[in-house]
């Protein structure tokens, strides 16, 4: 709920950025971006060993439509997920949006921008930038989630010290969240984002000249 309050100015800034940059014509574009960020999770990605995992795709959406529009698109996807499918939690929408609709697309997008700065739309540097951005974005989101979990036993506990929500402190929650993302989930995100950018470059490089930054 605290993060709901934190997200209000961010959502407000995102609405203003989108309103001044996207034309009326692009309202369906934003809705499609939101639906796209939801369905990316339906794609199972094969990984070595015969198993498969799925990507979040927040950085890919940010590269395609810009970080502010991605902030709204991912928030919409999270609202639909929590409200209609009972997945993610209504009271956790603020924290989830902070991690996945703010930290993830913004860090990922600016890492991509720094690496690909000045390169032509069809260059390999853009693919590397997309992969690096995806990795940085998802790991940063995991780090923030770990910190949020780890702070809960310090902030919310009974008189005798029993944790009311997440039972693990920062020393457990942060490494637990980072371990899986640095070693496994982050790489799934890298593969999906970099390869999708590579294919989009082949199909139509003009996609990488737009966006709302």
């Amino acid at each position: 709920m605290v993060f709901g309050a934190v997200m209000i100015p961010i959502w407000s800034a995102a609405s203003k950025a989108v309103k001044t940059t996207l034309s009326v014509r692009q309202v369906p574009y934003l809705a499609i971006g939101a639906a796209f960020s939801f369905v990316i999770m339906m794609f199972n990605v094969p990984i070595p060993g015969g198993s498969s995992g799925h990507a979040v795709g927040g950085v890919l959406v940010a590269i395609l439509i810009g970080p502010w529009a991605a902030c709204i698109a991912v928030t919409v996807a999270l609202v639909i997920q929590a409200l209609l499918f009972g997945d993610g939690g209504i009271t956790a929408i603020g924290a989830n949006s902070f991690n996945m609709a703010f930290v993830l697309p913004f860090i990922g997008y600016y890492v991509y921008k720094i690496i690909s700065s000045g390169s032509p739309a069809g260059s390999t540097r853009r693919i590397i930038g997309a992969g690096a951005g995806a990795y940085a974005g998802i790991c940063a989101a995991a780090l923030f989630a770990g910190i949020e979990f780890g702070l809960q036993p310090l902030l919310y506990h009974t008189a005798n010290g029993q944790a009311l929500y997440c039972p693990y402190g920062l020393n457990v929650a942060v490494p637990a969240m980072l371990f899986g993302h640095l070693l496994f989930i982050g790489w799934v995100e890298v593969i999906v984002t970099a390869l999708a950018v590579k294919y989009l470059q082949k199909q139509d490089a003009v996609f990488f000249d737009g966006g709302i930054s």
Binding site: I32, F36, F43, V45, P46, L195, A196
Partner: peptide
């Protein structure tokens, strides 16, 4: 798995292309 990853990435890119074309019609 590499062949599979290429199939998935191509399909994500293709889905995006088809949907952005659709936004104009919408």
């Amino acid at each position: 798995h590499r062949h599979g990853q290429n199939i998935v990435a191509w399909n994500i890119a293709n889905t995006w292309n088809r949907t952005t074309q659709m936004s104009e019609d919408v």
